[in-house]
Each structure stands twice: as structure tokens, then as C-alpha cells.
């Protein structure tokens, strides 16, 4: 193929057909619609765009969306490592069921999770009524948004850390113990550093998911402007008012954030794979 080898020769058939279909389907369903949105943004007047994305109500929604996603990802980092640790290292009855249950946020429709969490954490709910005694209101406050985002990001850290923990060489721990390290020193100096790439990947994935999440958050949020209104909801509100400009402008900000996160996650995964 005139000097430039695009693909190595192979005896297997079907490359043209499968690659052609892959590219066609990918373009029609993903690339062209996304390009359409980017072109739509490019058509916007810059002043208009800037006004839309820096409106105080929108700024308040960024603070909530990014802030709550960050806290939720942090909570998941701590508890995710704990759950992964308990699942890998300890034996207890019902472990297999617990392990399967971790994936529930992937399988349960987000709207169902949203109304269920709202029912639990409202002031008359199973958890809400007890928390209210301490003056903590969860549903219809930023805490509720964080709770929903924690729920939706829960599997990510567990599922990225768990396999690394399973493959971790026990001999390293034994060596450290022989050299006189206490258990706590082993955990801090031997185990945690080897989990770090996987942990950060899980954290970034949980953050990205929480940032874009809509279904499980809108019910528990209460959606009060400047207080519990997340950015994805603002996009929908603008669309319902046929304000395509505003919706696209805010959507572009979210899209850029998603791409940046994707780059970070790819970088982290590359780092993690190099470590092993």
C-alpha cells in the first residue's frame, strides 16, 4: 500500500465489512450529532454565549454540580476502598450477594433510584426522620444532591480498586512485616501506594458520572434556583423554554468538562497499566 502501511496484513477476512460498519454506525449515531452541537455552538454570538454561561443562576449551578460531585467522589474514594478491602480480604456470610449488590447503581434505573432516595431521606422517611432530630435535612438541600451523587458513583471506586487489591502480592506485605513494619505502616506505605492509580481512576470516573447525572438527582434536589439546581437540569429547563442558545451554551461547558475528565481518566489508566 504505497509506502504507508495503515494496517498489517492478515489472513482473517471481514476487516473491510466490520470496520466500514463500525465507522458508519459510530459516525451516524455519535460523531455527526456531536459535531452538529459543536457547529451550533460555533454559530452562536460570543457575547450571547458568554452571557448565557456566566449568568448568576448558571454560576450557582456550576458551584453545586462541581462541588457536590467532588464531595460525593471523595466519600466514594474512602468508602470504596473500604468496601473493596472488606470484599477482597475478609470472609463473612453473604459476601457474594454484597459483591453483586455493589453494581446496583449501574442496573437500577436512575429515576427509580431518585424517587427511592427521596422517600428515604425526606423528613418522614426511614433515614430522614432520625436525621431531622439532629437538625440535618437531607432531601431538597445540597446534602440530598450529594447523597444521590454518592449513590450513583458508588460502584466506580470499588470496581477499579478491587481487581488491583486481588492481584496485590501478599509477599510484599510479608516482607514489610519481616522488616519490622507495623500493620498500619504496611497499609500506608505498601498497600495504599499500589492502589493509588486505580483509586484516582475510580475517583475521576465517579466524579464524571456525578457531574452529568440527572435522573437520580432531580427528585431529591427539589430544584430550587440558586440553591439546589444542578447544571444538567438547567439545560433541560432552557430547552423546555425553547431557548436553544442558552441550552447549547451551557451544554458546551459541560461537554468540555466531560472531555477534560475523559483525558484525565485515560491518562490515569495509562499510568495504572504501566505500573503493573
Amino acid at each position: 500500500m504505497n509506502g504507508f502501511v495503515w494496517r498489517q496484513p492478515s489472513v482473517l477476512p471481514g476487516f473491510g465489512l466490520t470496520m466500514g460498519f463500525t465507522l458508519l454506525y459510530l459516525s451516524l449515531l455519535v460523531l455527526i450529532p456531536l459535531a452538529g452541537m459543536i457547529l451550533f455552538t460555533a454559530k452562536l454570538d460570543w457575547a450571547q454565549f458568554w452571557a448565557a454561561v456566566t449568568h448568576p443562576q448558571v454560576m450557582a449551578s456550576y458551584r453545586l454540580s462541581f462541588g457536590a460531585s467532588f464531595i460525593a467522589a471523595g466519600i466514594n474514594a474512602v468508602f470504596g476502598v473500604l468496601v473493596a478491602w472488606v470484599l477482597v480480604r475478609y470472609a463473612f456470610p453473604g459476601k457474594r450477594i454484597v459483591d453483586a449488590l455493589v453494581d446496583l447503581p449501574f442496573a437500577l434505573p436512575t429515576a427509580v433510584a431518585g424517587i427511592a432516595l427521596t422517600a428515604i431521606y425526606s423528613t418522614t422517611g426511614w433515614m430522614g426522620q432520625h436525621l431531622e432530630i439532629f437538625g440535618i435535612k437531607v432531601a431538597y438541600t445540597p446534602i440530598g444532591v450529594t447523597v444521590a451523587m454518592t449513590y450513583i458513583g458508588l460502584p466506580f471506586v470499588v470496581r477499579t480498586v478491587q481487581p488491583v487489591l486481588e492481584d496485590l502480592d501478599r509477599e510484599l506485605e510479608e516482607a514489610a512485616a519481616c522488616l519490622g513494619a507495623t500493620r498500619w505502616q504496611i497499609i500506608r506505605r505498601v498497600i495504599l501506594p499500589s492502589l493509588l492509580p486505580a483509586l484516582l481512576t475510580g475517583l475521576a470516573l465517579a466524579f464524571a458520572r456525578a457531574l452529568g447525572e440527572y435522573g437520580s438527582v432531580v427528585f431529591i434536589a427539589g430544584n430550587m434556583p440558586y440553591y439546589t439546581e444542578i447544571t444538567p437540569l438547567l439545560i433541560i429547563t432552557k430547552l423546555e423554554q425553547y431557548d436553544y442558545t442558552g441550552a447549547t451554551a451551557i451544554g458546551t461547558v459541560m461537554l468540555v468538562a466531560a472531555f477534560v475528565l475523559l483525558l484525565i481518566i485515560n491518562g490515569l489508566q495509562w499510568w495504572a497499566s504501566r505500573r503493573h
Binding site: V30, M37, A208, I236, L262
Partner: peptide, 19 residues
């Protein structure tokens, strides 16, 4: 590119088809 839809908020997935 194939992973792209996982990184994008579902609301934006709807938005691109509206646009």
C-alpha cells in the same frame, strides 16, 4: 471514540439530537 457516550451527560445526549 467508542467510549465517548459514557463520558457525556445523558442530558447532552438528548440535547445533540434536539439540535
Amino acid at each position: 471514540l467508542i467510549d465517548l457516550p459514557f463520558a457525556i451527560s445523558p442530558v447532552i445526549a438528548g440535547l445533540i439530537f434536539v439540535l
